[in-house]
Design a protein around this nucleic acid. Structure first.
Ligand SMILES: Nc1ncnc2c1ncn2[C@@H]1O[C@H](COP(=O)(O)OP(=O)(O)O)[C@@H](O)[C@H]1O
Length: 414
DNA sequence: TCTCCACCGGAACCCAAGGCGG
DNA sequence: CCGCCTTGGGTTCCGGTGGAGA
């Protein structure tokens, strides 16, 4: 047998193998994949490129503020433009550094400053210094660097809502006071359209010298995005037209979120693959929708601290005890009972109120402030997750499992 | 129209952990 | 080693409030 003969045999095997596999390149559906083409965002891309272009000639670009709902392509567009800017800068020999920071993930002002430093090769310890000290090192590092630093602050709304806009203020001041060449240019990205109201007017005017709005995608736009990705990700004739349309429609209903659309497509593909189906159907997409939601919920519950879990249980028990009224006061009472059952010191009501708000923000609870006139004002709390999740929580947490009997008394109804 | 309930939520503060620079 | 920093998780204190009922 010659080598060429073996290749033919392999070819046949490959063909057969690939015919029955759904994915050609699954990674193309992952959130960190940035395609070479971003449909329906050429306007934003051009504007951003136009704004940043002066940096190639050594002058400082205006600050930009990008805002729009999640999954509208803000991060993708930014990365798209910046990667090309970087290439051009290298070619042109401009001194240019880019620092991308996701503020929500960084979480604290200190860590944002620290990663700012590391982008210009200033190393700072990950803790121990005062913010002023880190900032000082950043400043002097910048002098030494002498070029233009483009700072991307992604999900900046999350940081400012918790820690205020102090660093932003300091950063905008750097820009002004930068002597000689170079300086800092900022790209702020916000998922919250009202975010501007949180900012000090001085910061706002400096940060949004330019603004770019990202509208939610329509179903048709999502369809185009999905189709391009699907061509890379899926094998031929595996994905039905209607399944694709359904993904687009479902995601369009959910704030026109492209990330959601791509997730739907990927998970639907995985479900199809696992059930050794030869194509992805509407049914797979619907199941993907459910799976994504229940995964999200379970993922959130799993990482919940003890007392937040107890609150979920308390809300559940209380809602079974008396259908109609489920206000924070009663929830707190039940919570205290549960604590006693576990021999735990209960937290204060003030704290519980805060935790309930967090659970609300995660979508595990619904809470709404209602006034009952003479009978005070309180929050009506409702569980926003299926009871099966409560059961699963009890089973999975060895610490809580001793409460199982207690909770089960209320299991029957509902 | 005024009262007053039953909480809400802002602000200041406390405390322990981890880690710096001097 | 000391005195200082940030951070995260909590507590204490307290002014604020929509509307049913007197
Ligand atoms: N116009 C587009 N074309 C192709 N993919 C897109 C487009 N817009 C967004 N995406 C994809 O959707 C996902 C979410 O986009 P992202 O830029 O992270 O949203 P945002 O930052 O606005 O929350 C990413 O995986 C991105 O690649």
């Amino acid at each position: 047998m010659s080598d060429s003969g073996r290749d033919i045999v392999f070819d046949i095997f490959e063909k057969v193998l690939s015919r029955y596999s759904i994915f050609k390149n699954r990674d193309a559906l992952r959130p960190d994949y940035i395609p070479d083409n971003l449909p329906h965002r050429s306007e934003q891309i051009q504007r951003l490129a136009f704004i940043l272009a002066p940096s190639l000639k050594g002058s400082l670009p205006s600050n930009v503020f990008l805002y729009g709902k999640p999954g509208t392509g803000k991060t993708a567009v930014t990365q798209f433009v910046l990667s090309r800017l970087k290439m051009k800068a290298k070619e042109a020999g401009s001194i240019l550094a880019i620092s991308y920071i996701n503020c929500r993930i960084a979480g604290t002002e200190y860590r944002v400053l620290a990663s700012l430093c590391s982008s210009i090769d200033v190393d700072v310890p990950f803790t121990g210094l005062s913010k002023a000290e880190v900032f000082q090192r950043f400043r002097s590092g910048l002098e030494r660097f002498g070029g233009i630093l483009i700072v991307v602050l992604d999900e900046i709304d999350a940081l400012v809502k918790i820690h205020g806009d102090d660093i932003l203020y300091e950063l905008t001041r750097i820009k002004e006071s930068s002597s000689g060449r170079g300086g800092v240019s900022m790209i702020g990205i916000s998922n919250d359209l009202q975010f501007k109201e949180f900012l000090d007017p001085r910061v706002l005017s400096s940060l949004s010298e330019e603004e770019i709005l990202f509208r939610p995608y329509t179903a048709d736009e999502l369809y185009d995005i999905l189709r391009e990705r699907a061509e890379i990700a899926f094998n031929e004739n595996v994905l039905s037209e209607s399944a694709l349309r359904l993904c687009a429609a479902l995601a369009a209903a959910e704030h026109g979120d492209a990330r959601r659309a791509l997730d739907l497509l990927r998970v639907a593909g995985e479900i199809a693959e696992r059930s050794s189906s030869q194509s992805v159907t509407d049914e797979h997409v619907r199941r993907a929708q459910e799976k994504i939601e229940s995964d999200r919920v379970w993922e959130a519950i799993k990482t919940l601290p003890l007392h937040s879990r107890m609150i979920l249980l308390a809300v559940y028990v209380n809602s079974k005890r008396n259908e109609s009224k489920c206000f924070t006061g009663e929830v707190y009472e039940v919570y205290k009972e549960l604590c006693e059952g576990l021999g735990l010191e209960p937290l204060t009501q003030r704290r519980i109120s805060g935790l309930i708000n967090e659970l609300d923000a995660m979508g595990l609870l619904n809470s709404k402030l209602v006034s009952m006139g003479r009978y005070g004002r309180s929050k009506r709390v409702r569980l926003n997750i299926p009871a099966s999740m409560i059961l699963q929580l009890l089973k999975s947490d060895p610490y809580l499992s001793s409460l199982e009997g207690y909770v089960e008394k209320y299991w029957s109804k509902g």
